[in-house]
Amino acid sequence: MAKFKGAVVVNTERCKGCDLCVVACPSSVLALSTEANSKGFNFSHMEEPENCIGCSACAYVCPDACITVYKVKVE
C-alpha cells in the first residue's frame, strides 16, 4: 500500500487557536503553540511533523481556512 507523507502550513496570523484542527488530526501532528500571534491567539502548528500523512482533516474542519496541506507519495 502506498505510503504518504504530508506537511501543513498554518497561516498563523489568521489562526484563532480554536483547537479544532488539533482534535481532528488522526496522527497527533498538530498542537497549539505557546507563542501567540498579534491578536493574542495561540496558533496551531506542527508539533510532530514526522507524523503528518497529508490527510487534510485539519484543513477541512478549520473554520478560518488557515491551513494549507501538502502531500507526497513516498513508496
Binding site: 497561516n11 487557536g17 481556512a65 494549507t68 502531500k71
Partner: peptide, 22 residues
Amino acid sequence: NLVYDKTSVMNDTPMHYCPGCS
C-alpha cells in the same frame, strides 16, 4: 505537492467570528 488550500473566492480578510465558529 499541494492538496488543500484556501480558495481565492474566500478573500484574506480575517473573519470576525469567534474561534471555532461553524
